[in-house]
Amino acid sequence: MAELAARRLMLVHAHPDDETINNGVTMARYVAEGAHVTLITCTLGEEGEVLVPDLAHLAADQEDGLGQHRIGELADAMAELGVTDHRFLGGPGKYRDTGMIYNDEGNADVPPETRKDSFWQADLVAAANDLVPVIREVRPQVLITYDQYGNYGHPDHIKAHRVATYAADLAAARSYREDLGPAWDIPKIYWTAMAESRMRSQLRLLREAGDTTTFEGMDPDGPMPPMITPDRLIDCVIEGEQFIDRKMNAMKAHATQITVDGPFFALSNNAGNQIWSAEPYRLVKGTAAPDADGVEHDLFAGL
């Protein structure tokens, strides 16, 4: 067995691009510090909207080639961040992107009809069994995934949360599936978060810049949706201004999904440090080891 790196971080995400948007700075920072970073992506993102006109033919309702294309986008993004260990859950294409709709409340929701091979329909134990051996192989001290709401309600995000959570429990059980490797109990588990104070300040910047469509309907001084986390529940904030260029380049690598010429990115180029370089987390397993300001600034703090 190869010798393990001293610090090991695992992230479980639903589609290519989720990892860069949520954790690009975090991943780049820990790679730079010599930690082993493992990314697990649960689907190929086959149902995503294609933002590049010349590639519109790849859409699910046309040639249905978007998933294969996004394998390349993810590889390019990970090259920007320096991540060499990125895998698809159960292998590329085993679980199909479920797609999503917006319900009457304006939240992401499960489509009325889903395919049998969709990630949403996957058996929870079977999907967890694809992740357990990776956890036991890599033996991460830190796991990052979504909250129970999948941050904004996308069914694949919710399923990724459930699979990661269940697999972490199963991987720790000495008597569970000895054929999948020796048990490993992950010391710290975090959920990605969007901090309320930062969201309000970013909304103000966007509105002041004349952007009324990004996060449409959200008022900087009004009530926040469920995907926004009150500051008192934020346990860790990873700041990485020196890695912001890597994150932005990785986002550009996901060209079919992220457009970089809109007002949001124009603002980002001017205020990118505030919008993209701070990545907040909620600690849901393990003991927090906060700094003097009351939050952690290292996911491995206390280990």
Rank of each mutant, 00 (worst) to 15 (best):
M1V: 15
L4Y: 10
L4K: 14
A5S: 13
A6E: 15
A6Y: 08
R7C: 09
R7I: 07
R7S: 12
R8P: 15
L9Q: 06
M10I: 11
L11W: 07
H13E: 09
H13Y: 08
A14S: 11
A14C: 08
H15V: 00
H15P: 10
H15S: 04
P16G: 06
D17L: 01
D17K: 00
D18T: 08
T20K: 04
I21E: 10
N22A: 10
N22P: 02
N22C: 14
N23Q: 07
G24W: 01
G24H: 03
G24K: 04
M27K: 00
M27L: 08
M27N: 02
A28Y: 01
Y30I: 09
Y30W: 11
E33I: 10
G34D: 15
H36L: 14
H36P: 02
I40K: 06
I40H: 04
T41G: 01
T41I: 06
C42F: 04
C42A: 15
L44Y: 06
G45Y: 00
G45K: 09
G45S: 01
G45I: 01
E46R: 00
E47W: 01
G48E: 03
G48L: 01
E49F: 00
L51G: 02
L51Q: 08
L51N: 03
V52H: 02
L55G: 02
A56E: 12
H57Q: 09
H57G: 09
L58R: 11
L58Q: 05
A59W: 00
D61K: 05
D61R: 05
D61Y: 11
D61H: 10
Q62S: 11
Q62E: 14
D64F: 10
G65A: 12
L66G: 00
L66D: 00
G67F: 00
H69V: 02
H69G: 03
H69N: 10
R70I: 04
I71F: 01
I71P: 02
G72S: 12
E73K: 03
L74H: 10
A77I: 07
M78S: 00
A79L: 05
L81Q: 04
G82W: 07
V83E: 09
V83Y: 02
T84Y: 03
D85Q: 08
R87S: 05
R87Q: 15
F88R: 02
G90C: 11
G90S: 12
G91F: 15
G91L: 15
G91C: 15
G91V: 14
G91P: 15
P92L: 06
K94E: 13
K94M: 12
Y95P: 13
Y95D: 10
D97I: 04
D97H: 08
T98A: 04
G99A: 07
G99H: 02
G99D: 03
M100Q: 08
I101G: 05
Y102V: 12
D104H: 03
D104L: 00
D104Y: 01
E105K: 12
E105A: 06
E105I: 01
G106W: 02
N107Y: 14
N107Q: 08
N107H: 09
A108S: 12
A108F: 14
D109I: 11
V110F: 07
P111Y: 09
E113M: 08
T114D: 05
K116Q: 07
D117S: 14
S118V: 11
F119R: 03
F119P: 13
W120R: 11
W120F: 14
A122Q: 07
V125M: 13
V125N: 03
A128P: 11
N129F: 06
D130F: 13
L131S: 07
V132A: 08
V132M: 11
V132W: 10
